[in-house]
Design a protein around this nucleic acid. Sequence first.
RNA 1: GCCACCGUGGCUUAGCUCGGUAUAGCGACUGAUUCGUAAUCAGUAGGUCGGGGGUUCAAAUCCCCCCGGUGGCUCCA
Length: 647
Amino acid sequence: MIKVKTGDDKVHAYEIGITAEGVISDILGRKHGAVAVLIDGIERDFSHVLKTDCSIEPILGASDAGLYILRHSCAHLLAQAVTEMFPDAKPTIGPPIEHGFYYDFHMEPISKDELPKIEKRMKELAKQNLKIEREEHGNTKLRKMFSQNQFKAEIMDDKIGHDVGSSTYRQGNFVDLCRGPHVSSTSELRWFKLTSTSQAYWRGDAKREPLTRIYGLCYATKEDLKKRKKQIEEAAFRDHKKIGKEMDLYMINELIGKGLPVWLPNGELLKSEIERFAVETEKAYGYERVTTPVLAKQELFETSGHLPHYADSMYPPMEMDDGTYYLKAMNCPMHHLIYRNKKRSYRELPLRIAEYGTVYRNELSGTLTGLLRVRMLSMNDAHIYCTLDQVAQEFADNIKMIRDYYATFGFEDYKFRLSLWDSENTDKYIGLPENWEITQNHLRQILDDLEVPYEEGEGEAAFYGPKVDVQFTSLLGREESMSTIQLDFAAQECFDLTFVDETGGENSNLFVIHRAPLSTHERFIAFLTEHWTGNFPTWLSPIQTQVITISEKQNKYASKVAETLEKAGVRTRIDFSDNTIGKKIRMHRKMRPAYMLIIGEEESKKKTVAIRSRAGEQRNDVTLNDFVKEILEEIKNRSAELNIVLS
RNA sequence: GCCACCGUGGCUUAGCUCGGUAUAGCGACUGAUUCGUAAUCAGUAGGUCGGGGGUUCAAAUCCCCCCGGUGGCUCCA
């Protein structure tokens, strides 16, 4: 007999040789959503045979560890289906990933249309309730079993060498080299869906064999899978590329070049409203605005240290008759020169230099997509020149600024990250280790003092110093950097930035803070569009009111309404077409005006308007004056919610 | 950059497997209608099928090259 300790801290006695499943079903009655077990802290299959005293607890499918196992088993099921349907396909690796799994096969590429067929086969195999069995083999046997698959051989070379054996998992005719654990039967795999195919390389190395990758989702429950499918659908529905086209926000033309978006009038309105907001806000915080050239001499970027670190992401150099020039990938070097343009006194600090600059970065052509990854970035950039003891206040101000901005734009799902250097890999950075320690601790202290919740990101720092980033969760749950506040202790030395201190002496104890609270316009507007599904707050809406008449008889009054609104500063459009009212509403919805004003005989007579919200709610008999007053108030307040109809 | 998939009027799209110069809807325009809340009727125009080359009597369709779009590109079998 052996003693087995279970999760409830009870000790049970069993015959030697009982399986984990035997114990779990004895305690719980049945498996209760468990996919595997934890024996003395090690993940095991249900079929694991117990020979000595141990502790055991079930791993639930819904837990992180359980999902991992489910997804991993799902990858095997995929491989089983694929190798059956495409006998030449050689399985390579198939790990679980966030939301699901993938499996890479060495095979002819397949199109997305094959996925439903493969998925169908997977479902059939799952239904067959095939037992998933672990087998242990010696090295020679293993080598023989996978002699047809050079990828598995390579994995064995790496992972187990030529002496020791390892395990395989068998389900039906399919066997895969794997250390497990796995669920005990294919029938436990139910809530999965194949989503896409793509191409990858063996070992992620472009010089090695190209592989066909198949991605799938997998969850423990039907609801979770459904939720994720819906999330993906929703994201496609809100896609800024789709909405940007519908609303005429921007265009990309192949003659201009990819990654170089053109702002159309509606997008430009959005952009300029954001800029106006930033200019107003930053004026209140003591920023001064400048404009610097889009290109500069090579020596400038050498001085700043950017060229050695950033050469790949800068555009190739331009040879001119008086030297080599580069398009700027950042504004800081020029701002440093503005600082150095004259002797600075401690009384001027902190000196805050801001610019709506456009910087150019040479992103790999294959990574460019919509507004999210572009080669021309419009930035609400600024650099703050200050002493170390002023750093805390500047960070506090910027964190407050970011929080205020986000509240106004309606963003709620974001968090702060303290981005530190990678102390194992210091080649990527400039400056002395002790400077990194000092500044990193300083930032940590600032965040702690401000009681800002944050997480730390090792290796996420800029090459010149640590930073505080704001991580935003996209519709698909992906984390993206939005805002950033960076502490730079290296610029002082590179550019010899100093000030005259209280004693009249030259002081080099100067720090630079780089900050971009609104990311880049391109990225920001992409997120903003997806966040609001194009239904922007009134102050941002390219079209704030769309005037619609019931019939041509009201054209005259409607023109007056539109004119009054325009004069008051409300962006207004009017539709004089002789379409029916229903059709007009349907057509204008695409452009997502904040409000539609419906004008018929009633309104014409009473000199009122009927206000229709985006949701279709309506408020009738509003005098034009009242509406103008209310919408101006909403615009002025930069209200994130549209309240006029419900008020 | 590399790889896979895709590219048909302003937009969405049929046709491509098995070659015979193209389908429909929306939108635009014209006319009728003057209408009360997500499709009023009729008509007209609009496409060298992303670009170039090749095969062929004949190419949207097959082949090659280029351009563009989309997805993906170290993460324990």
